[in-house]
C-alpha cells in the first residue's frame, strides 16, 4: 500500500524530533565552547577561540588528553588480543557448559556496578602502588574492555563456517596458518569493532579512573569532572566539541570504508 502524503509528513516530523532529541544535548556544547565569558551559561555570550587555546596550551588539559589517548590505545590493543584469543578458545571448547560458565565469568566486569569494581581495584592498587600509574590504568581498563571484545568477536565466530578450517588443512595449512589466513580475515570485522569498543570504553571511563587517578596521572574524563566541579570552565565545552567532531569523523570514515568494501 503506497504511503499517503500526510502520513509521510508526520513520519518525517517524528523522525526529525527524535533525531533532535538525541543529538541536541551534544550540539548544545558547540556554541558553549565559543563563549566569550568564563561561564557555562546557555545561550553563550559573544565569540572567542580562547577555550580551545586553553585546551591546547594548559598542561592540565593537554597532558590529561594525551594520557587518555595513550591508555586507550594500549587498552584497545591489549584487550583486542586477549579478548579475541578468549573468544576463540570459548568457541572451540568441547564442553558447552564449561564454555558457558567461563564466558559468563569473563563478561562480569560489564555487569558488575562500576563503583564496586572501582573500590576493589582501588584497594588492590593501594597495596600494589599502582595508583596513578600508566600500567595501573591500562590494567584496570583492559578488564573493563575485554567483555566488549569477547562479545563482538564471538558474534563473528558464531557465523564463521568452521569447515573452512578443515578445507584449509586439506590444502596443507597447519592450525596456526589456517587461523591466520582463513579464520582471522573472516572474523576481522568483529575484531575491529571490538577494538573500537575497547578504545571507547577506556577513553570515556570515569568511575574507576576517579579512584585510581592522582595529581601526576589523570585521564581526560577525570580532568573534565574535576574542572567542572571546581569552576565553570568552558574549556570543557571546547574539549567536548573536539571529541564530538573526531568521533563523528572516525565513524563516518568507517561507514564509508565498509560501504566501499562491500561493493568491490
Amino acid at each position: 500500500m503506497p504511503m499517503q502524503k500526510h502520513t509521510r509528513l508526520i513520519l518525517g516530523l517524528v523522525c526529525l524530533l527524535v533525531a533532535v532529541w538525541l543529538v541536541a544535548p551534544t550540539l548544545v556544547v558547540i556554541p558553549m565552547s565559543f563563549n566569550a565569558n568564563k561561564s557555562l551559561a546557555f545561550p553563550p555570550v559573544g565569540f572567542s577561540w580562547q577555550w580551545y587555546e586553553n585546551f591546547l596550551t594548559n598542561p592540565d588539559w593537554s597532558s590529561s588528553f594525551f594520557n587518555s589517548l595513550k591508555v586507550a590505545t594500549l587498552v584497545a590493543v591489549l584487550a583486542t588480543v586477549l579478548g579475541t584469543l578468549a573468544a576463540f578458545g570459548l568457541d572451540r571448547m568441547r564442553s558447552a557448559t564449561a564454555s558457558g560458565i567461563l564466558r559468563m565469568l569473563l563478561i562480569t566486569p560489564m555487569v558488575v556496578p562500576g563503583v564496586v569494581l572501582a573500590i576493589g581495584i582501588y584497594a588492590v592498587y593501594l597495596d600494589a602502588h599502582l595508583v596513578g600509574t600508566l600500567g595501573g590504568f591500562v590494567l584496570a581498563h583492559t578488564i573493563l574492555a575485554i567483555p566488549f571484545v569477547i562479545i563482538a568477536v564471538s558474534a563473528n565466530l558464531e557465523v564463521f563456517d568452521k569447515r573452512l578450517e578443515t578445507a584449509a588443512a586439506s590444502c596443507g595449512a597447519g592450525r596456526l596458518t589456517a587461523f591466520r589466513t582463513v579464520t582471522l580475515p573472516l572474523i576481522l570485522p568483529g575484531i575491529l569493532s571490538g577494538l573500537l569498543f575497547a578504545f571507547v570504553t577506556s577513553f570515556d571511563e570515569i568511575i574507576v579512573a576517579l579512584f585510581i587517578s592522582n595529581p601526576y596521572l589523570k585521564t581526560l574524563p577525570v580532568q573534565i569532572f574535576t574542572s567542572i566541579t571546581r569552576d565553570a570552565d568552558p574549556t570543557v565545552a571546547a574539549v567536548g566539541t573536539v571529541l564530538f567532531l573526531a568521533t563523528s569523523l572516525v565513524i563516518a570514515g568507517g561507514l564509508l570504508l565498509g560501504n566501499r568494501r562491500r561493493k568491490s
Binding site: 569447515r163 578445507a167 596443507g172
Partner: peptide
C-alpha cells in the same frame, strides 16, 4: 599424521571455498 601433512586433495559437498 595430521591432515595438513598428508598431501591429499579433498572436495567437500558444501564447496568450502574461502569467501574472502
Amino acid at each position: 599424521v595430521p591432515a595438513h601433512k598428508r598431501n591429499i586433495g579433498v572436495v567437500f559437498q558444501h564447496y568450502a571455498l574461502f569467501p574472502h
